[in-house]
Nucleic acid binder design. Structure first.
Lengths: 152, 152
DNA sequence: ATACATTTAATGTCAAAACATCTATTTATA
DNA sequence: TATAAATAGATGTTTTGACATTAAATGTAT
C-alpha cells in the first residue's frame, strides 16, 4: 500500500516530504512488526537491540557507554536496560578492572539461547525484503547515509 | 557518515539487514532533529503531527479516530494528545452532532499561527534533502511502500 | 601533589507510551 | 423491539522515555 493510502494523505508538498514521512512511517511499522514477535519472549525492542550488540561482541566485555554508542536509539537509558537484562539472567555485569568507573557487560548462555530462538523470526523478516534486490537495498542504504550527512 | 560508522558495526548479515537498521536509525535521527526544533515551541513531535493533520483538514472537523488513522505512529493515545493541544488552545473540540459518541476536532487560529512559525524550519529540513534528486526520493518512497507491502 | 575538569554509570523525577478497561452510543441481529 | 455486538473516546495503571543530578574514578594542568 502506498504511503498516501496508509496515512490517508493524497498530496504532499513535494517528493522530499513524502520521503521523510515514509521513512518515519515505515520505521514505526518495522518496529511494530518486531515488537509483535518480541512480546511473546517478554523483551522490548530496546532490550533486544542491546542483546544483539552483546552477542556481536562474542564474549568480549563491553562497557555501558560503548553499548549506548552502538544503539539505534541513543536516548534510552542503557544503564536501566542492562538492569532489565540482568534481572532476566540474559546478561551479566562485572566491574571493569582497568577503569573502576566503568562496568563490563557480557551476554549469558541464557541470553544467547533466547537470541537463537529469535533468529528464525529475524530470518523471516529479512526474507520479506527479497521483494527488492540486494543491489537496490544497498543503493537505498547509501541514500539514507547521504541524507543524514546533509543534516550535519 | 555510513551506517557502519554510525552504529559501529562493520559487518552486517546482508544488504537487507543493513537497510533495516539504516531505516530505523535514520528515522530516530530524523525525529531527534525535529524534536530539537519543537522543544523551543513546547510541543512534542506527536503533538506536531496531530496539528499538521488538523491543518490539512482546513476548517473541516475531524474525529479523533480519523486522526489516529492518519498518524505516523498509531500507538499513541490520540485522546490525550488532543487534550494537550486543547490545554494550549491549539485545537478545539466539539461533540459531533451526527454521532454523539464521536468528537470533532478543529485547529484554532493559535494552532495555525504556531504551525506557520514552524514552517520555515520544515522548509529547511526539506532543503537538506536536495542532496538527492526528487526522482531519487520518489524511487526511494516507492521502495519503502514495496517493503511494507511484503510484510502483510 | 593539589585542584579542577571530565568521564562513567546510577538514580530521581516527571512526562509520555503501552496496554487494558470502562462508559456511552450506535449498529446489527434475532 | 429487545438484545447482543461493535464503535468512539475517555480513563486507570504500569512501564518506559527524557532529562537533570549525583557519586565515584580518572584525567589534566599548574
Amino acid at each position: 500500500m502506498s504511503i498516501e493510502t496508509d496515512i490517508k494523505q493524497n498530496k504532499f508538498r513535494n517528493a522530499y516530504q513524502r520521503l521523510a514521512l515514509n521513512i518515519l512511517y515505515t520505521s514505526n511499522w518495522l518496529e511494530y512488526q518486531q515488537m509483535e514477535t518480541l512480546k511473546a519472549y517478554d523483551i522490548t525492542s530496546q532490550q533486544y537491540n542491546v542483546l544483539r550488540i552483546l552477542r556481536g561482541q562474542k564474549q568480549n566485555p563491553i562497557k555501558v557507554s560503548d553499548i549506548t554508542e552502538r544503539m539505534l536509539d541513543r536516548n534510552s537509558n542503557t544503564s536501566r536496560l542492562v538492569d532489565k537484562l540482568l534481572a532476566k539472567n540474559l546478561a551479566k555485569r562485572t566491574s571493569c578492572p582497568s577503569d573502576r568507573r566503568a562496568v563490563d557487560v557480557v551476554i549469558t548462555e541464557e541470553g544467547l539461547q533466547l537470541l537463537s530462538e529469535l533468529d528464525p523470526f529475524v530470518d523471516a523478516w529479512e526474507e520479506r525484503y527479497s521483494i527488492i534486490t540486494p543491489e537496490e537495498a544497498d543503493q537505498f542504504s547509501a541514500m539514507l547515509d547521504k541524507l543524514r550527512e546533509s543534516g550535519k
